[in-house]
Design a protein around this nucleic acid. Sequence first.
DNA 1: GTACGCACGTGATTCC
DNA 2: GGAATCACGTGCGTAC
Lengths: 200, 200
Amino acid sequence: MIETTSVVERTMVVTKRADSLTRTPLHAHEHVIAERKRREKISRSFSSLSALIPGLNKKDKSSVLGDAIEYLKKLQERMATLEEQVAKRRVESVKFVKKTQFHIDEENFDFQSNNSFPEIEARVSDKDVLIRILCETNKGYVLNIINEVEKLHLSVIHTNVLPFGQSTLDVTIVARMEADFSMTLKDLVKTLQQGLLKVM
Amino acid sequence: MIETTSVVERTMVVTKRADSLTRTPLHAHEHVIAERKRREKISRSFSSLSALIPGLNKKDKSSVLGDAIEYLKKLQERMATLEEQVAKRRVESVKFVKKTQFHIDEENFDFQSNNSFPEIEARVSDKDVLIRILCETNKGYVLNIINEVEKLHLSVIHTNVLPFGQSTLDVTIVARMEADFSMTLKDLVKTLQQGLLKVM
DNA sequence: GTACGCACGTGATTCC
DNA sequence: GGAATCACGTGCGTAC
């Protein structure tokens, strides 16, 4: 891009048509300055924009705009497929869970009332995370659970607490991932567990 | 953006500085046309670019450029996190279990119908049975679940149904054993599963 | 009515 | 020297 460093004030005498009116008689020079400012702003935007486009050598205005358009289209396109992939993988992970995740241990169930709680389980479908927790009845505990969940870039959209037996609580939570949620389920469960153990 | 449809040919007489040379003496008018073409090209690029930016009301050049820059930055940023998510998303979505309490029963999942819902889980505490079911959204299905449960000498005392993702339903049931209930959990789940598959 | 934005024609500059 | 690009000052339309 050509950069004109010195602004040359040229003297020009312009003969206008008879029907052409002298519209800006007084503040003529202010208009010049305003226009200068406007151009400068646009020019700077061009520079900023060109900086965002990878692999751009030609810095002329047409190329910047053209390549910006092209690049933007590519990005949007890739975004769509990527988002789809993420959604699809989540579905697949659910299927995987279905196959391997079915297990009941009858023998050990009688000894559950010691310190092995809370028991946490999580799974994903689309943008939702399903969290199931089994814990001892304990006042204030539900509050802590929700609090811990919302710390993890998840917004709770459903909760359900059921009494189960004499001293057990079944907590079910559905939470929606926020944009910056990026945790594996394993880490999610781990983090949750550690967070909850502290406040037991 | 303002579109000037008619190009007005103005007659201008310009007095130049002494050292300013008349560079384009002959092909002066071709220059005008070429410049016109260039401007038109840029202008069209502006229109195309503005069309790609969602939620753009102001169509002036500065706004288009500014918002394009902003939008592009947002896209690139989101791209990075999304790509990371895709890379990081492993197949594992595991339920965290204490080894003392559960063990993975690899052999037994063969008897389930290998790929489809519903996924059923059951456990006992005192006289209560907790039943968790994950199934596809399906009208009338919840009714069947409860019906099947009550056939097994269990009286439902709590139910909860939560939407999970686009097409999944999380059903939690707490039922109390009646006097003549005498089933292993394994059989309970098996029976429930077979009963539900019939009415799918 | 004035402040803003645009396209215009034009000289200058750069690159082949 | 010709082709392409730029910034400039300016007139015109328009929306506040």
